[in-house]
Write a protein that binds this DNA or RNA. Structure first.
Length: 631
DNA sequence: CGGTTTTCT
DNA sequence: GGAGAAAACCG
């Protein structure tokens, strides 16, 4: 491989092996051919409002929360508008700025949020609702999933050869407007399709043999932004397979972004690289509406341009500590510090992690997680509130808010339910209290309110209660449920068969508002709203319907004596059983190690005593939540 | 279980 | 800088 021969020389081999190629199938976190993408919606809340209002892209717009700005679109940025300034200053800088206040809940109106003309004058009675953005986020996520599922679907030849492989991309929702995607399996499939020479010799004996070299001398990077190569690397060198996989990844990401634009009118930016850290940094490089590719040969050059404090996890205390210890914030300078020296000033795994991370190494996996792990509803009081009475009013709103979100999440259908409810309470100092949510019976607004009230009493009883400057309620420790017998069967069937089933027994998505099922709303034309406003106001309410089980919401019934009010006992047990099986299923697949900079990562799995009966779910060493067969 | 840190809009 | 939110970590 050291000869200066022509690229098509059949004697020349790649520096990559079949083993590394195979790594793509299972989502190995160490193969140099891995490709991870990070996709980030541009100024997300601002775009949501632009879409909702039909505001053209070149009109400056900002999203307002009381007197502050929480999102600024790209048209407004040249005016010098940023998050730090207030509304008056923003108007001064840009008189034509469209200022849209976030939707709010209002005291006495239960769980119904609305966009109101006067919300910014009602900070004392209103509470911010981010529901509209969550709803958009769900739609975008679904669109991305669909795009990934259909990418290259016209050719199933390779799948036929590998009936056991799923070969689909893993998508992790990282926040309301960001996803990570491990494109490796999809790219593996494409590679075998496009380069039949890679198919041969996959017998186990040959795993460490080198691959043939790619049959190309130049790659067409389309509209991608390429990060410059490292010193001593040159564009004249023929591309390696690690370049080819990036190109394919880039093609996939472009099609995903295009789907989001065509179907929903949102632009996003993306980064592609060999791991999550690189991808994440990359996506922020060229905004808005562009994608950045960091090839392996460009990684060090790329990182050298950064302060390490901009790398995930190094933005806070840890970053400061490192800066202080080594007298620099620059990646390029920290690079000269040998590992042993890092060890003298930092905890052991922190040092190891840091050493790798500034060299572009990150083996954290993309978790197949698209669902939220906790829900919180909060309010800061200025001025502070001073009575139990006032606090209870907010609890009503919090309970309604969270209940509405639980409904979206599928509590009614028993798909998921939280096990714990927590209250945070701030006076001079802050306190919190949590209690279990009873595992039997339906969760409704009143139950949440009653539990919250119990917590409030506790918290008020055990310290200086007033004045209170901040109050919040959250639910967490979600447990997966199953909505019907079909789904449980789905659990019991393993491997290949489960896959076949998984597509057919898809239980309605609560992702979309019931109103817009076959949303064939394409062709947004910069102005004029093509029914977007309607679709935006999808759900809401679940307000004073504490009595009814709104039968209408269960269209496409889940064939089983619908139990809207709790799971019958025996069934509940079945459900735990199915859960454990699913757990086992997942374990066999992976040998994962997140490798994060922790002080002492003695991963809990603390088999909590928990005297009660409900907590029976025996040791489940799951980190990212498990995926239901139908999800 | 309760507090803290980090990240994001 | 503040408000609201979510996740992960720590002891």
């Amino acid at each position: 491989m050291s000869e200066p021969t022509e690229s098509s020389d059949p004697l020349k081999v790649s520096r990559f092996t079949y083993r590394q190629l195979q790594g793509l199938r299972q989502g190995s976190t160490t193969t140099p051919l891995r490709v991870v993408a990070h996709i980030d919606l541009d100024a997300f809340y601002a775009q949501c409002e632009m879409v909702r209002l039909g505001t053209p892209r070149d009109i400056p717009l900002a999203v307002r929360q009381w007197d502050s700005l929480i999102a600024i679109n790209y048209a407004a940025r040249p005016f010098g508008i940023n998050r730090l300034i207030n509304v008056a200053e923003a108007r001064k800088l840009c008189p034509d700025l469209v200022l849209q206040h976030v939707a709010t809940f209002r005291e006495g109106e239960g769980g119904r949020w609305a966009y109101r003309e006067d919300s910014f004058r009602n900070i004392s009675t209103d509470k911010v609702s981010l529901d509209p953005y969550r709803a958009q986020s769900r739609k975008i996520l679904q669109t991305m999933k669909d795009a990934l599922a259909t990418w290259g679907a016209n050719n199933t030849e390779v799948e036929a050869q590998n009936p056991k492989q799923e070969l689909s991309a893993v998508l992790e929702k990282a926040s309301i407007d960001e996803v990570f995607i491990d494109l490796s399996p999809l790219i593996y499939r494409a590679l075998l399709q496009r380069y039949p020479e890679l198919r041969i010799a996959t017998q186990d004996e040959n795993r460490d043999a080198e691959l043939p070299i790619p049959p190309t001398t130049a790659l067409q990077w389309d509209t991608d932004c390429l990060v410059d190569l490292d010193q001593h690397e040159t564009e004249e060198d023929d591309p390696g397979w690690d370049d080819v996989v990036m190109l394919i990844g880039s093609e996939i990401v472009r099609s995903v972004r295009n789907a989001v634009w065509e179907k929903l009118s949102y632009t996003c930016s993306a980064g592609l690289g060999r791991n999550k850290m690189i991808a994440k940094l990359g996506s922020a490089c060229n905004k808005p509406n562009l994608q950045t590719v960091v090839r392996n040969r460009a990684v060090q050059n790329f990182l050298n341009g950064y302060k390490f404090t901009q790398i995930r996890m190094l933005g806070g205390k840890l970053g400061d500590q490192i800066t202080a210890a080594f007298g620099t914030e620059k990646v390029s300078e920290l690079l000269h510090v040998p590992l042993e020296q890092l060890r003298t000033r930092l905890a052991d795994h922190t040092a190891t992690w840091l050493y790798g991370i500034i060299r572009g190494e990150d083996r954290s996996e993309v978790n197949p997680r698209t669902q939220i792990k906790s829900m919180l509803s909060a309010k800061s009081f200025r001025p502070s509130i001073n009575s139990l009475d006032q606090a209870e009013k907010w609890l009503r709103i919090f309970a309604a808010d969270i209940y509405g979100r639980l409904v979206e999440d599928g509590v009614l259908e028993n798909r998921r339910r939280p096990k714990v409810i927590t209250m945070h309470y701030r006076t001079a100092q802050s306190r919190s209290r949590q209690i279990p949510i009873p595992g039997s019976g339906a969760i409704d607004e009143n139950l949440l309110y009653d539990l919250a009230n119990t917590l409030l009493r506790q918290v008020v009883a055990d310290g200086q209660a007033w004045p209170c400057s901040n109050l919040s309620l959250s639910v967490s420790s979600f447990e997966d449920g199953v909505s019907n017998n079909k789904a449980i069967e789905g659990f019991l069937i393993r491997g290949d068969q489960a896959k076949a089933l998984s597509h057919s027994s898809r239980p309605r998505d609560a992702d979309n508002s019931p109103s817009e099922q076959a949303s064939t709303e394409k062709r947004r034309k910069l102005d004029g709203d093509g029914g977007k406003i309607k679709s935006f106001f999808g759900n809401q309410s679940h307000l004073e319907d504490t009595s009814a089980d709104e039968p209408g919401s269960l269209q496409e019934p889940v064939e089983m004596d619908a139990e809207l009010d709790g799971i019958p006992r025996e069934e509940h047990d079945d459900w735990h059983f199915a859960k454990d099986l699913a757990s086992q299923d997942r374990e066999e697949a992976k040998g994962s190690q997140p490798s994060l900079p922790t002080k002492s990562s003695a991963r809990g799995t603390t088999a909590r005593g928990r005297g009660g009966r409900g907590g029976g779910s025996r040791g489940k060493p799951e980190k990212g939540q498990m995926r239901l067969a139908f999800q």
